[in-house]
Amino acid sequence: MQRAVERSRRTPPPYLTDSLPARNGWPVGFAHRGADVRRENTLAAFEAAVDAGFGHLELDVRTTADGELVVFHDDTLDRVSTGRGRLRDHTWEQLADVTVGGEPLLRFAELLTALPEARLNVDLKDRASAPALARILAEHDAWDRVLVASFHDSRRRLFRRALADLGHPDRAYGPEQVATSGGAAAIAALVLLGPLGLTGWLRRYALDVDCVQVPVRHGLVPVATADFVRRCRAAGLPVHVWVVDEPDQMERLLEMGVDGIMTDRADVLAEVFTRRGIWPQR
Rank of each mutant, 00 (worst) to 15 (best):
E251M: 02
C211L: 13
A45T: 07
H32W: 12
A224W: 01
T274S: 15
P215V: 08
A184V: 14
G174W: 12
R79T: 01
G25T: 12
G55N: 10
R127N: 00
P27W: 05
P222R: 04
S150H: 00
F159E: 00
H240Q: 07
R233N: 15
R7H: 01
R3C: 01
P131M: 12
V268A: 00
P175I: 08
P14A: 07
F46I: 02
P13T: 06
E68F: 00
L43F: 00
V37D: 08
A22W: 07
L196W: 13
L105C: 00
N24Y: 04
V122N: 07
R84V: 14
P195D: 09
R282N: 12
G260A: 08
A188D: 14
R276H: 04
V50Q: 06
R275F: 05
G257H: 13
D153M: 08
T64G: 03
M256I: 02
D245K: 04
V98L: 08
A96R: 13
L137E: 06
A138L: 12
A162C: 07
A138T: 14
R171Q: 15
G194I: 09
A118R: 05
A164C: 11
L202P: 08
V191H: 04
T199E: 11
G101Y: 09
D141S: 14
G197E: 13
G277C: 10
V241Q: 00
D208I: 07
L20T: 13
V209P: 03
P169N: 07
R156S: 10
R157D: 10
Y205Q: 01
G200E: 14
A189H: 11
S150F: 04
G182I: 04
A234M: 06
Q249V: 12
L115Q: 09
L95C: 10
R155N: 12
L220M: 12
L253C: 13
D126L: 05
H140D: 13
L115I: 12
A134P: 11
E103I: 07
D259R: 07
S150T: 07
T99Y: 06
V216K: 10
I261E: 02
G167C: 07
V5G: 01
R156Y: 00
H73I: 11
L106F: 05
V239A: 04
L124S: 03
A226L: 01
G277H: 08
S150K: 05
A172K: 14
D267R: 05
T76E: 12
V100F: 05
H152A: 12
R203F: 10
W143T: 09
A65T: 00
R282Y: 09
T225P: 13
E139G: 10
